[in-house]
Nucleic acid binder design. Structure first.
Lengths: 196, 196, 196, 196
DNA sequence: GATGAATGAGCGTTCATTCAT
DNA sequence: GATGAATGAACGCTCATTCAT
């Protein structure tokens, strides 16, 4: 179990360092120092620098998926689930700035291989959104003419764009609750003033 | 005249190479080869590698701003303008895959300096969205309770997330027109089935 | 232990290479090859190329100072001390051609920083000369009207100019002993034939 | 004659730039800018960068030789001639800081080729000293047991070491006249207090 | 398993030199 | 002759990875 500890320690250190400096500017020695292990030790647990990045996702996004699935429950309506997903994502990103940055920056960065990866692990997280949309369409809450996969991209794109704000712009002072309300409301009832 | 040509040639080559390999994996020699100039020639027009990246934005996003402003016109309603913006952005991204990738990937990648930069040039493009929202709120078309800057982030986030689809996922086969309708509709009237 | 060895090995190699090619024509890879280490290894012990040059001085001139101070002793007269200094300097320069060249060539070359440095470490060596002069003036052996710092410059300038001869001119065949006598005599009693 | 003007202009500019930055840190473009010609123009008058350095010597030291020969005259005693040479050299170095630096720094720097050159042009200047010594020995003024070529090196080394002082150390405030007296006196009658 | 010194391939950048105008 | 844009070889330095201890 001790070796698993080191593995985790390195993942945690890497998350911090990647968030702080970006993948390409992060040095193996930075991660090693942050994790308080020797440079060489990292190679006992990971094949190469890129492998660490992938593991960071696997680890952190795994936790994210687990957590949000727990919150969503089974009895909630699709509408409530969408609210929960949005609120939770924003809260998590606000809380864990390292993860937020890693998702935002790194997910885009290392194109080819990440893209492959995205089809697997990260996609699982995104699929939760699509599933909620489909559920809402099935029970007549959500419009039938909206394509679930496009809606999913809209939702995630919006959330992700917002997240970056907290960690880069100093004048982004809205709370997760405020933003969550805004986005949920916007996505549910739209920008237009409703005709009565 | 001639020097402007070279400048443009290098920008164009850099856009292509950055899109293909990402900033950090792009080599100056790759750009030089693509532009059919010597490595050293690049440094007659740019201070360093990063400066090339910034110039790619300045150049390409400048064109984007100019073009969309032309399309928006002055007489259109805010609602129409939002449609135009969305449609145009998607069409441009579909057309110019290099720009799409550079925006998507690089904008996030090179954190610190880009963030500064984002506040200037790229922000101008984003501000167009916020201005449309505000215009719509002023004339009573758009809801007053939606914060324009948050709406702007939602819109851009959604568009950007969609754009990546075309250039990474092979199974993203929707046309700009289809996607444009979906997003416009979703953002305007929301996901919920309207109560009658 | 081991790391000190590498440090020394690199210093020694650098001394040789700098002497052979001069600072600017010396390549890091030349030094690495001479020291039988990898290029990168050098940067584990030195910050940059210039730092190597400074270290060569620190190391070699440190040894020079230590050695001459030992020889000078405390009981010798100022006159004897001057003789010893001159003889020793010439012998050392004859023996260690690399050091001779590095002092002669490099000391002048890399102006700004070296000048600072000269005020510190190398100056210590020069100050020995001035101290001897002052001692001789105090005990009435040397003329009072000669300024010690000027005399010091004359002595060192003369010695340095001579040193280069051995390593550049093939027709400089005087032995250290011969030259030492010449210089000592010249500086002590002057060029003029003494009136009787 | 116009082309000779350019040649001279470049030489003058190069002297200034070499003195300011040293040979290796001087850029052809620096010299071109200083001379107010295009980079390429320099190659119409010189074969390469090093050729410029050689020409600087040829030009400047040529003037030095001409000037000192004029001053020395033919009727002066060897003793007076030595005084004149010393005084003139110091005055020139004080006056023309560029030349002083170029002689001092560059003469040592570019080892191999300069050494060859030294045997020719610069040597002519040094030979003047040796000739004076020999003349003094011939007429019985100077000691017979001092080797002229060694004395020459002592004289030049001393003068050169002094010159650097003015252009590097801020606390070197002696005037040429003071230093000239000191050196002349030291070299003529020596350090030792004369026995009576 | 853990270390961290050593490696060396690789890249951004500079600048002397060339040559079309 | 004069120009200065273009060239591309060359080098200092970095850092992911290895391996002897």
């Amino acid at each position: 179990m001790k070796s698993t500890d080191k593995h985790r320690k390195i993942i945690r250190a890497a998350t911090k360092v990647f968030a702080r400096k970006g993948f390409y500017n992060a040095r193996i020695s930075d991660i090693a120092k942050e994790a308080k292990v020797a440079d060489g030790t990292i190679y006992l647990y990971f094949n190469n620098k890129f492998d660490i990045l992938l593991s960071v996702f696997e680890q952190e996004i795994g936790k994210l998926i687990e957590h949000v699935n727990l919150l969503l429950g089974k009895k909630n309506s699709a509408r409530t689930k969408l609210e929960i997903f949005i609120t939770n994502h924003l809260e998590e990103m606000k809380k864990n700035r390292y993860l937020a940055e890693v998702i935002h920056i790194e997910l885009r960065q290392t194109t080819k291989i990440i893209r492959e990866y995205r089809k697997n692990a990260f996609n699982e997280y995104l699929m939760i959104i699509a599933a909620i949309i489909e559920e809402g369409q099935a029970d007549g809450t959500f419009r039938q003419d909206i394509l679930p996969d496009i809606a999913q991209q809209v939702v995630f794109g919006a959330l992700d764009e917002i997240s970056i704000c907290w960690h880069t712009d100093s004048d982004c002072t809205y709370t997760p609750a405020e933003v969550s309300y805004q986005i949920t409301s916007l996505l549910q009832t739209g920008l237009l003033v409703q005709a009565t």
